[in-house]
Amino acid sequence: MIEDYRLDPKLAKIRIVLVETSHPGNIGGIARAMKNMGLSQLVLVNPKEYPSQVASARASSAADVLNDAKVVSSLEEALQGVQLAFGASARLRKVSWPQLDVRQTAELALQTVGQDEDAEVALVFGREDSGLSNAELDLCNYLSHIPSNPTYSSLNISAAVQVFAYECLMATEIKSVHSSGYRHQLATSDQLEGFYDHLFQALQDVEFLDPSKNARFMRRMRRLFNRAQLDVKEIDILRGVLSATQRKVGVSNKDSD
């Protein structure tokens, strides 16, 4: 479980705009993808079928995002009040639009809404079969794309939204997103040096290491553990093992703490 988890309020300023989505299941899947990543604004431009039981079933526990979706009749209406609009497309068009990849898009989106408390941005996605038209891209500031296999670049629309939403979440500065949960704080240099000193002494205590004959041994140990990028909890575990080993052979480890 992630402790003290909170979402960056800037995520609430990002609109996901879907243009003429034909399958209601995709709308539900997109609502779920949005809630997974902390996005909440969903705008539907002339959806073929909405509301829909299929959409509700696919949304799972993201019914709030789905039920709060705004339905409009034109892309112009969907983009009202938006400072920047990013048109998502797998096709890099012959006409030269300013282009960003998905990571650059997320970074610019978060930067934009962070600079102005009233600013909002939109990520615009087109039809499942044909995407956005050139006229619709004309309403966007940037063409945004997901780098992929050039011989098979088309993604399901809900998968594409998931990738963009994920990059938006990762572009936030909320520490709980980046360093809590499954990832822990990396050990400091002082903590690592304490561990290496403890390891050096413990290996002598159990008569594994003869310093006079193993001058390169600790250098190899440093290389091994430095590659592992030990975190604070892992250092504590390893030093606990060393202390238990020292106690087993009747050696106090108080000088190694």
Results as ranks from 00 to 15, higher is better:
38 G>M: 12
200 F>W: 13
233 K>N: 13
234 E>I: 12
127 R>W: 00
252 S>Y: 02
9 P>L: 04
203 L>S: 07
149 N>H: 09
224 L>N: 05
211 P>L: 03
37 M>V: 07
14 I>L: 13
227 R>N: 09
17 V>K: 09
99 Q>F: 10
238 L>M: 14
127 R>V: 11
139 L>Q: 10
216 R>C: 05
57 A>F: 02
230 L>I: 07
44 L>H: 14
197 D>V: 09
77 E>Y: 06
219 R>E: 10
123 L>V: 12
81 G>W: 04
30 I>A: 09
64 D>K: 10
20 E>H: 06
95 V>Y: 02
95 V>G: 02
86 F>H: 00
94 K>W: 03
189 S>T: 14
62 A>V: 07
23 H>D: 03
136 E>C: 04
1 M>R: 06
213 K>G: 02
3 E>I: 04
126 G>D: 08
105 T>C: 15
18 L>D: 12
240 G>T: 00
154 S>R: 15
234 E>R: 11
47 P>A: 07
188 T>N: 06
112 T>P: 11
86 F>M: 03
122 A>D: 09
245 T>G: 12
49 E>I: 00
189 S>Q: 10
150 P>R: 08
170 M>E: 13
221 M>I: 15
180 S>T: 08
221 M>K: 03
9 P>Y: 10
158 S>H: 04
126 G>T: 02
154 S>D: 01
244 A>G: 10
164 F>V: 10
37 M>Q: 03
71 V>E: 10
133 S>A: 01
215 A>K: 11
147 P>L: 06
1 M>W: 08
125 F>S: 12
173 E>I: 06
36 N>R: 08
97 W>A: 01
199 L>E: 02
149 N>C: 02
217 F>W: 04
243 S>I: 04
51 P>C: 01
199 L>M: 13
126 G>L: 08
100 L>K: 13
42 L>E: 14
75 L>I: 05
229 Q>L: 08
116 D>Q: 09
29 G>T: 11
106 A>K: 01
77 E>C: 06
96 S>T: 05
68 D>E: 14
247 R>A: 12
78 A>G: 02
30 I>E: 01
94 K>A: 09
24 P>K: 00
8 D>E: 06
21 T>N: 14
68 D>N: 15
167 E>L: 08
111 Q>R: 04
54 V>C: 09
216 R>K: 12
173 E>G: 10
97 W>L: 06
130 S>Y: 02
58 R>I: 02
173 E>L: 14
17 V>T: 04
234 E>S: 03
33 A>I: 00
233 K>Y: 07
84 L>F: 13
129 D>H: 01
124 V>E: 03
60 S>I: 08
16 I>H: 10
246 Q>D: 13
20 E>C: 11
110 L>C: 09
207 E>G: 01
187 A>D: 11
90 A>Q: 12
84 L>M: 12
198 H>R: 10
209 L>F: 05
112 T>K: 08
231 D>E: 14
58 R>W: 06
243 S>R: 15
109 A>S: 14
204 Q>S: 09
62 A>W: 12
200 F>Q: 06
139 L>P: 03
82 V>F: 00
3 E>K: 13
254 K>Y: 14
57 A>Q: 15
37 M>H: 01
245 T>K: 08
79 L>T: 00
102 V>W: 05
89 S>V: 15
227 R>S: 08
14 I>K: 05
5 Y>M: 07
62 A>P: 05
237 I>S: 11
6 R>E: 13
46 N>M: 13
48 K>F: 09
32 R>Y: 03
28 G>Q: 01
25 G>T: 00
69 A>M: 13
188 T>S: 15
